[in-house]
Structures are given as structure tokens and as C-alpha cells.
Simulated assay, not measured.
Amino acid sequence: MSPTPTGRWIPTATGGELVISRTFRAPIEDVWASVTESDRTARWFGPWKGDARPGGRIRYQMIQEEGAPWSEARIEACEPPRRLVLTDSMAHLELRLSTVDTGTLLELVHHLPGPDGVGAGDYGPGWEFYLDALVASRDDTPMPDFNDYYPSMKPYFEALLE
């Protein structure tokens, strides 16, 4: 079964937000731990280490990327258990968590500069993959295959910008 893209494009005054979300039948604190505790992020994204406070810097490893490189990010905001904002050399990311009737809504927001959303076709499939990997890690099910996401989802994300 092929995964279905869920991303949305929201134009803003400074560019736009590529928003991809998942809902979990779990308390907000537990989902927060899945996206902020290194031993838990290691299960679906990769581990991290460093100074995890606003203004601090962390190093993180994206285990699904070729060569599993380590990168550096700055923590712009950390408001447990509702909001985390990170910037690195390639992205300005925000995680927003909220309580909903069925549990917790997690929104991954990739802020893109400029109204044309350059890069959404490449970033979107990757974030869909990583959020499905988060779901798999929490449900103890097999990890998704990136080849099911890219390049097949690229046209969907490019069409969001039209």
C-alpha cells in the first residue's frame, strides 16, 4: 500500500508554511517525549546531543539519510509540551502539539521563504516519511520505505503551490 500525502501549504507574509500532521491516541506529554527525548527520537529520526534549551545548539543525526550525517541546529523556542522551534543551515522547523478529542495532534511546520515555496516538492515527501516513521516507532510496526515517498509524492507537493 502506498502512503498518501497529507501536507498543506499555507501562504504567509514572509513566504509559506509546509504543514504535515499526524494524530496520536496518546497524551500530549507522551508524544512530546517521542519528539524531544534523544533515546526516543533515535527510533524514528535519529539521536541528538547538546544544549537543548532556547538559544542552545544541538547536533542531530538523520539515520535514514545516506551516510547518516550529523548536523547542527539551534533551539529557537522550547515550550513543553506544545511547541519546539529549530533552525539549521537548511531549514526553519516548528513542531506544534495540541490536545484533540482523539489524543494529540502533531503538526510539523517547515517555514519556507518566499511565496513560491521552493523546495516543498523535495521536503514534503521526506517529512511525510519521517512522521510515518514516528507512527511506526510508537506503534511498534515496520518502518516505512523512503522509496514509497520520493519521488512519487513530489508532484503532490509541487501542486500545492499552484
Rank of each mutant, 00 (worst) to 15 (best):
E128M: 09
D122V: 10
I75R: 01
Q64T: 11
H110C: 10
G119R: 05
L86N: 00
V118R: 15
V135T: 12
L86P: 02
D132A: 12
S89K: 10
P69Q: 06
T104Y: 05
G126P: 02
Q61I: 04
E72V: 10
T87Q: 03
P80K: 12
H110R: 07
T102S: 15
R59W: 06
C78V: 12
G124Q: 05
R83W: 08
E76Y: 01
Q61H: 07
G126I: 03
G50Q: 13
L86T: 01
A68Q: 10
L105I: 08
A52N: 11
R57H: 13
M62T: 15
T104P: 07
T102K: 13
L112N: 07
P113I: 10
A77E: 06
R74I: 09
L106M: 09
T104Q: 08
D101G: 12
E72M: 06
P69N: 05
Q64S: 15
D51S: 10
Y123I: 15
Y130F: 12
V135M: 11
E94D: 02
D116A: 14
A120G: 03
P69T: 07
L112H: 03
F129P: 00
K49H: 11
W127S: 02
E128F: 08
T87G: 12
Y123R: 11
S71L: 14
P81G: 13
R57T: 06
P81E: 07
I63Y: 02
R82K: 14
R53Y: 08
L108I: 04
T99K: 14
G126K: 04
S89T: 12
G119T: 05
S71I: 10
G124T: 01
